[in-house]
Amino acid sequence: MNEKSKFLKNREKLSRHHTKSFSKLSRDRKDLAAHKAMRALAICVSILVPVFILVLFLRARPILATHNISTLLFSTTWRPNQGSFGFFPFIMGTLWVTMVAMIISVPLSLLTAIYLAEYTRPKVRAFIMPLIDLLAGIPSVVYGIWGVLTVVPFIQKVVMPSADRWLGFSPLFQTSNPTGYGVLAGGIVLAVMVFPIIIAVSEEVIRTVPLGLREASWSVGASRWQTIRRIVLRRAFPGVIAAVMLGFSRAFGETMAVLMVVGNVVQIPHSIFDAAYPLTALIANNYGEMMSIPLYDAALLGAALILLLVVLTFNIGSRLVLARISYS
């Protein structure tokens, strides 16, 4: 990188010299102006996220000023008409759905990623990876439609009866909500939505583990699987965690697909079949309406702020890990 920028600097000097010697000063000036404009543009774009945070913070300030933060976060009462804005049910809704999604998605994605990176031939991989990319390109309302048409009936007709028969003793599987719309439906839809993220990132991370390391392990007689488990995955561990964090932040912030299948009942879910009301659904369903209720829209933007900060934390964390990996 250093070499490159040094080279480019030299180039620049040379080309300046060149243009000057032909006394084309106007072109030179135009070049410089363009350079400055491009830099300004890039820097503007790069401060967008801090600006987002600032805007949300400013607009949420009325509610932060009148309500204790811990009340906002941990109160379970959500009665905007009476001025009670407890986000806890929504936060729990988001966490439940996201956790269920990750529990389903992480093992399946990682196994697929390991398979693609370690066991398939390049030709097969070149066939499968684009298909997984297609999964990433499907719009979230289509996932939502799929959830409504396939996942919800499946849960209602197949999963709930059998869970009732085999796992009914655990409160995790008991519910008074017979519709199928709920945490599990949201979790399954989200799980499929984050497949491509976790798979693509962790597959790439696993493949960046140097071949020499694998060969070193094979050369003392370790099998392929032993090498993967003890060496490759250990080496790829930070990157795999980063991949999972990326998936988590995607699931955490997903709106439309979840909204269509979680049931949207303001309550703290206690079972995977209970309906939930995630933060994103709260914003999507209510923002822009009922603006007459005092503080209501400040509360919703506060919810957006919480969402953004959580997603940001996970995103930055994983990006920093991935950047470190690609430099080492």
């Binding site: 140097p210 020499g212 390391l213 060969e215 070193a216 392990s217 050369s219 003392v220 060496i231 250990r234 080496r235």
Partner: peptide
Amino acid sequence: GLLAPKPYPLPL
């Protein structure tokens, strides 16, 4: 056994 041109210490 094999000793490679470049050392690859395992991440251990």
